[in-house]
Design a protein around this nucleic acid. Structure first.
Length: 232
DNA sequence: TAGGCCATCTGGTCCT
DNA sequence: AGGACCAGATGGCCTA
């Protein structure tokens, strides 16, 4: 075996036990480039290239180059695979962290009567509205308007809102609390307050939606904020 | 059975 | 170069 080709194959073997394959020979051209020109190695007494022995040598070289290429491709494939597996692991972990953060957010939001778990999108929208409502409550309290004392009347987050029915994950937002029995139906339009989340054009959830209903907050907020349902 | 939600995988892009 | 982030695809599970 010509020394360059031998080195070429041994490089492949070394690379197979190493995670770093950069600079690694990947195809038969790389190996072939290491071979001396046939004319340079031809000396008097050597068999001419068209002799049966020379043809055998050439076939052997081709076989080895082919095996080297197959091995290098397999190694690159396994390298890509191991990187992909690691990336998948990181992505899984990232999503788990995201879900843990969503769970933490759910834990500080008012819970529903039957402990129905809010979906991800519901959690985010509910949190958005809840923060808005709390801020509005504080604003009114600071102004000394009807509804003052709201700070003291705020219920702990675990209080249960009064809902026309448990939120069905499959039901759409606009169907929640929109029935005639809902107090929200008679409530002042939150759209009157331009700062209300419901006033936002791109906000999918509107008045009457349980995600706009927060227990324990002053009824006065009904005039300026998204729908509030009295807490029992 | 259709539709909604979710977890996971995957390749691309951006950032450090 | 490697990690973070993102969006699309896919398949499983559940419910009406």
């Amino acid at each position: 075996m010509p020394a360059p080709l031998e080195k070429c194959l041994s490089d492949l073997d070394c690379a197979s036990s190493s995670s770093d394959l950069s600079g690694f020979l990947t195809d038969e051209e790389d190996c072939a480039g290491l071979q001396p020109p046939a004319a340079a190695s031809f000396r008097l007494g050597d068999a001419p290239s068209n002799t049966p022995r020379a043809q055998d040598d050439e076939q052997e070289r081709r076989r080895r180059r082919g095996r080297a290429r197959v091995r290098s491709e397999a190694l690159l494939h396994s390298l890509r695979r191991s990187r992909r597996v690691k990336a998948n692991d990181r992505e899984r972990n990232r999503m788990h962290n995201l879900n843990a953060a969503l769970d933490a957010l759910r834990s500080v939001l008012p819970s529903f009567p039957d402990d129905t778990k809010l979906t991800k999108i519901e959690t985010l929208r509910f949190a958005y509205n809840y923060i808005w409502a709390l801020a509005e409550t504080l604003r009114l309290a600071d102004q000394g308007l009807p509804g003052s004392g709201a700070r003291e009347r705020l219920l702990p987050p675990q209080c249960a809102p009064c809902l026309p029915g448990p939120p069905s994950p499959s039901s759409d937002a606009e169907s929640w609390g929109s029935g005639p029995a809902s107090p929200c139906a008679a409530a002042a339009s939150p759209l009157s307050d331009p700062s209300s989340p419901a006033a936002s054009e791109d906000f999918a959830y509107g008045p009457g939606d349980p995600l706009f209903s927060f227990p324990g907050l002053p009824k006065d907020l009904l005039h300026t904020s998204p729908c509030f349902i009295p807490y029992h």
